[in-house]
Write a protein that binds this DNA or RNA. Structure first.
Lengths: 117, 117
DNA sequence: GTTTCATACCTAGTCAACCTAGGTATCAAT
DNA sequence: ATTGATACCTAGGTTGACTAGGTATGAAAC
């Protein structure tokens, strides 16, 4: 099931965690990040470039990522890589997510050991 | 752990689901809704009135809630009650939440049968 | 050979909605 | 008489995902 019907803003407040998450296992360039998010989310996250690129720049400005240009198949790519600060931020955001999702479960009555439909 | 450090917007995109969720088991007035959200979330959701009241009005405008004034202990209260439409909306948002949280788990590697700290 | 599609990057501006900051009012307690 | 909890409200700020445009290369289609 897609989330399009939410009417946009579907990852509000969680996008940076998602970006840090996909970069945890190794550096990727922007376009590949979009694909990874789609694949790893089972097609739920179809995030437009206008969402991803500014967010990557914000994360770089914040010191969570570094980037470097590379050339592949005649195409220039900007590869993003987690910094130590980025790993710390990811760890913090994971905790926040755990807390948040548990809290949501407490309110709407979704069993924690669930996700089960 | 609180979520204050997120820097606001802590329930972005999920507030309406939370409100519908607390009203599922019976009508409540606004102030009581705030307390219920705090209690049921284990203290994570400390939502200000300026967040809750406009959201309740939006939900009423959307046909998900009806309201009626009542008097208790010399204080006027507006009691909100789920409509049939509201229950449908809640069911839909529950499914969206399940899909969303599963997708997040797929990206950041949180086991679904988790939430476990 | 040129149009199309996938790859690959970017930014300016829009818009939704959460929150801040103020306001009103009652009742109990100090 | 003032403070604090209860109980409601709205205007406006701010944030950030998204829309809608732009540039450019390489491969495939026609």
């Amino acid at each position: 099931m897609k989330l399009d019907d939410i009417g946009g803003q579907l990852v509000k407040g969680h996008l940076e965690m998602l970006l840090l998450g996909v970069l945890e296992q190794g550096p990727l360039h922007g376009y590949a990040i979009i694909e990874q998010l789609r694949k790893r989310s089972g097609g739920v996250f179809e995030l437009p470039e206008g969402t991803i690129y500014p967010a990557l720049h914000r994360l770089e400005d914040a010191g969570c990522l570094t980037s470097s240009w590379s050339e592949a198949a005649g195409r220039r790519r900007r590869e993003y890589r987690l910094t130590g600060e980025g790993r710390e931020a990811l760890a913090a955001k994971r905790e926040q997510w755990t807390s948040f999702s548990a809290a949501v479960g407490g309110v709407i009555g979704t069993a924690l050991a669930g996700g089960a439909l």
